[in-house]
């Protein structure tokens, strides 16, 4: 059901962001601010039965088109079907970002070159999709102490990440990379690493009606869109999605998900998180790295400039 349809304002060449969310009102002001600054021209939001006031907030934004639904999150495959449909309708021929409200794109030169520069370069290079690593960010200390007021940068309270423990393999069916690791693998999935969450994402795509996301933003069809990496030894331009999941809001969310049994495998993932994250250090360890800027991520090898210079 459309609450606010402002899609008529979209112009050719605009960069569009597509988001599904549920009860993330406190994140929205910073999320919108962050992506507006990068140069997103229009936001498509599918709100899944939020009751925290986020809907009202979004309704008032002139560059947001809002849909809302009560349908089950799981039955619509994590909102991807909704977004696929919206992209089919509105995304064709545009560069599109498909995001969760806690994902923040960082790419080489993002402090000096807006998304339109990136997309222009990708166009010139004949590249249709940009690969990223989903980088879990966390505080030093128990999650309950990491409070991020609305409008604030969540990475002020959660600036830490795992710099070098990622495992990469290739999915033979779709050709995409499968990346695992980070604090979640280190803490929660040490004995069942095959169940550790996927950290490979392809959020930025020059959309075409023929394209479709298969599984969250991990896998796309046609397969060629998943080949965002070089196989001959070189590096292709790639980015990082900073993941602001691990804040004090996390436990409430986890509890809710467990109750709803809606998320991945009936919320099993969330159950495990609950205990450890509130230890004295939380997810932090001695070798955690504190986020500075994109250059740091490039040097660490978590993203690459490719041949963008």
């Amino acid at each position: 059901m459309a609450v606010a349809d402002r899609t008529a304002a979209i112009r050719p060449g605009d960069v569009l962001a597509f988001v599904t969310l549920r009860n993330e009102a406190f994140r929205l002001p910073f999320f919108l601010k962050y992506y507006r600054a990068l140069g997103v021209n229009h936001f498509f939001v599918v709100d899944n039965a939020s009751d925290d006031g986020g809907r009202d907030l979004l309704e008032g934004e002139s560059d947001v088109s809002l849909w809302t639904t009560e349908a089950s999150y799981r039955r619509s495959r994590f909102g991807i079907d909704w977004l696929n449909w919206l992209k089919f309708r509105h995304g064709h021929g545009h560069w599109t970002l498909t995001l969760d409200a806690d994902e923040f794109l960082v790419y080489p030169f993002c402090d000096a070159r807006p998304l339109s520069a990136l997309c222009h370069w990708l166009d010139q290079s004949g590249i249709r999709s940009l690969g990223t690593l989903l980088l879990d960010m966390y505080p030093h200390g128990p999650l309950d102490g990491a409070h991020c007021p609305p409008g604030e940068n969540p990475f002020k309270v959660a600036p830490w990440f795992d710099p070098g423990n990622y495992m990469v393999s290739q999915n033979p069916k779709y050709g995409n990379l499968w990346i695992q690791g980070g604090p979640r693998a280190r803490i929660y999935f040490a004995d069942t690493p095959e169940k550790a969450p996927s950290l490979n994402k392809i959020p930025l795509v020059k959309w075409d009606r023929k394209f479709v996301f298969v599984n969250s933003t991990h896998i796309l069809l046609p397969r060629g869109l998943n080949l965002v990496f070089d196989e001959g030894g070189g590096e292709k331009l790639s980015g990082v999605l900073l993941h602001a999941k691990f804040l004090d809001s996390f436990h409430a969310k986890a509890a809710e998900e467990i109750e709803r049994r809606e998320h991945f495998a009936g919320g099993r993932e969330y159950q495990a998180y609950h205990d450890v994250a509130n230890g004295p250090h939380g997810l932090w360890c001695e070798w955690s790295e504190r986020y500075i800027n994109w250059r740091q991520l490039e040097l660490l090898g978590l993203m690459s400039k490719g041949n963008w210079a």
Binding site: L177, G234, E235, K236, G306
Partner: peptide, 26 residues
């Protein structure tokens, strides 16, 4: 440097933009 990075990459690094086939690792 951009040419070297794009064609040879950083040896011993595997990441979202670099996953060499066997024999192409440099």
């Amino acid at each position: 440097q951009a040419v070297i990075r794009r064609t040879r990459g950083r040896p011993g690094l595997i990441m979202a933009g670099r996953h060499p086939r066997p024999g192409f690792e440099n």
